[in-house]
Every structure is written in C-alpha cells, then in structure tokens.
Write a protein that binds this DNA or RNA. Structure first.
Length: 267
DNA sequence: ACCCAGGGTAACT
DNA sequence: AGTTACCATGGG
C-alpha cells in the first residue's frame, strides 16, 4: 500500500465534490475523506491543487484517475458555461465540483435507496448493504457484487431498513442478474433509450435513471430534475438551459443544484 | 403528534 | 397528460 498523487488538478474542490449529493459513501475524518469504492478502501486528501489517494495500490492509479474525473477538461467546460451570465454565476460559486465516475451497480442501488429519503439515512442504508452483503475485508466491507446480491429476497433486505425500497433493490438485482439489463448495453444506448431501459426497473423513475446515467454511466448530457432543480430552473433559467451547456448538461446541473441549494429560497 | 426527505407507483380525473 | 394518496423509516 502506498499513495497516489494527482498533481496540479484544477479546478477541483474535493470536499464539495464528495458532499454535493452525487455519492453517499465518503466520510470526513481528521486524516481526510475516508471511503470505499467497490473493494478499494482509501483516504482522499487535497493539498492545494494536488489530489492525494492515501492507502491506494499503485496498480489502481487508472481506476482512481477515472473515478475522480481527473483528466476531464473542466477549464474548457467552464469557459463555455460562462458565456451565460446566470450559469457563470453558478460556476463561480460551485466550480470546484466534478462529476465522479462511480461504478454502475453502486450508483444504481444507492440512488434507488435515495428516493424520498435524506442523505444521512441513504448513507446508513448503503453502509448496512455493505456490512450485511459485502465481503468482510477486515474491519470494513466491500460494496456487494451482483453475485452476492443475487437470489436475495425482500425479507433478506429487511436488515437494511430501507422500507418500501427493498422490493425495488430486489427487482434491480434480478434484472441485472438475468441480463435483461446490462451496463454495456446502457452505455451504448442513447440517453432516451437508456433512460427507458432503466425505468423498467421497479422504483426507478426519470430522476433516479438520470442520476444513474450521469454518475454511473458517464453520460454527461443527463440532466436529473428534482424539486430543487425545478425551483432553480424556474428562477434562473425560465427559458431552459442555455445552449452553451450542450453535451455537458449534467455538469451544469451539479453547479446549478449546488448554487440553488445554498442561495435560493425554498419556496 | 406532525413534518419532511434530491421519488415512484397506482389510481384516479 | 396532469394531479394525488400512499409508500416505510428516521430525524427534527
């Protein structure tokens, strides 16, 4: 075990990136942000413009580079976004956020859990999903694989205390296990076709599907709409998203969401 | 006791 | 196509 250092990554605000609501598996500690992705457990820190992955295996450099969206050209994206005055305001406020590239299964299951739920409880349920069904790595647990979740029933998932969402998890696992839905196929499909396919899972509607596509399938055009976003769009962009967001609507969404949650009245 | 939480579904107009 | 009760659970 050693550490990986990504040098001179800018713009990047690690704390905002990890706690803007796109992921639920990181915890702030005095040493840094501690978390598990798949079966990799690390602590992340930021020192000026360097992003450091503590406790990582060097052979996982490419994995963390991808997960943390290190190589995406955010400077270029933000320059285009700033052609819109309103969006430029959001960039100024939230421009340190990057959209992570999370593993598909984790993204799908945690966002099914997220519906009509709050972040502390989403985190707690996801933690229990790992401790009860993931591999014991000695003091911590990996996120369960599809194989580990196969054949599980609503009764098995009762320990999660996920409420009515348990049956949705079962259906998602079943559709993936039977290959009625595959990550590979979803990645190849257009935004609308992939959304339609994801929405065949019970408990997955447009909001969850769009989150899964943005955070777990690398589809940067996906634009999740929840109550906050609808409020923000009415106030900031009553005529719709500006054209300068084309292809990167989802990244604009993160900036707008973060800005709106902090600055707009919740009416 | 009551409210809400980055929704979705079924059952209505 | 648009609106509404209900869904389990936990925290305020």
């Amino acid at each position: 075990m050693s550490q990986i250092c990504f040098k001179n990554v800018t713009p990047y605000n690690l704390e905002e990136t990890l706690f803007c609501g796109q992921c639920f598996r990181w915890q702030k500690t005095p040493l840094g942000y501690c978390g598990v992705v798949g079966s990799r457990r690390v602590t992340l820190t930021q020192q000026q413009s360097d992003i450091v992955v503590l406790g990582a295996d060097e052979s996982d450099t490419d994995f963390w580079c991808d997960y943390l969206a290190i190589q995406e050209d955010y400077t270029g994206i933000q320059n285009r976004f700033s052609k819109s005055k309103q969006l430029g305001q959001c960039v100024t406020y939230a421009g340190g956020i990057r959209v992570l590239h999370q593993p598909f299964l984790e993204t799908l299951l945690t966002f099914i859990i997220s519906q009509n739920n709050n972040i502390p409880r989403i985190t707690a349920i996801a933690d229990r999903l790992c401790t009860y069904f993931g591999t014991d790595m000695g003091g911590w647990y990996a996120f369960p694989t599809l194989e580990q979740l196969q054949e599980k029933t609503v009764e098995d998932f009762a320990v999660l205390r996920a409420g009515f969402r348990a049956k949705y998890l079962v259906d998602a696992v079943e559709k993936l296990a039977k290959e009625q839905i595959s990550e590979e196929e979803l990645r190849a499909l257009s935004l609308d076709d992939a959304r339609n396919m994801l929405c065949t899972i019970k408990g997955v509607g447009p909001k969850v599907a769009d989150c899964v596509m943005l955070f777990g399938l690398g589809k940067t055009q996906s634009f999740p709409r929840d109550v906050w976003m609808n409020r923000a769009m009415k106030q900031l962009f009553p005529k719709g998203l500006p054209a300068c967001t084309k292809g990167y609507e989802g990244i604009a969404q993160q900036y707008i969401f973060y800005f709106a949650r902090a600055n707009l009245k919740n009416t």
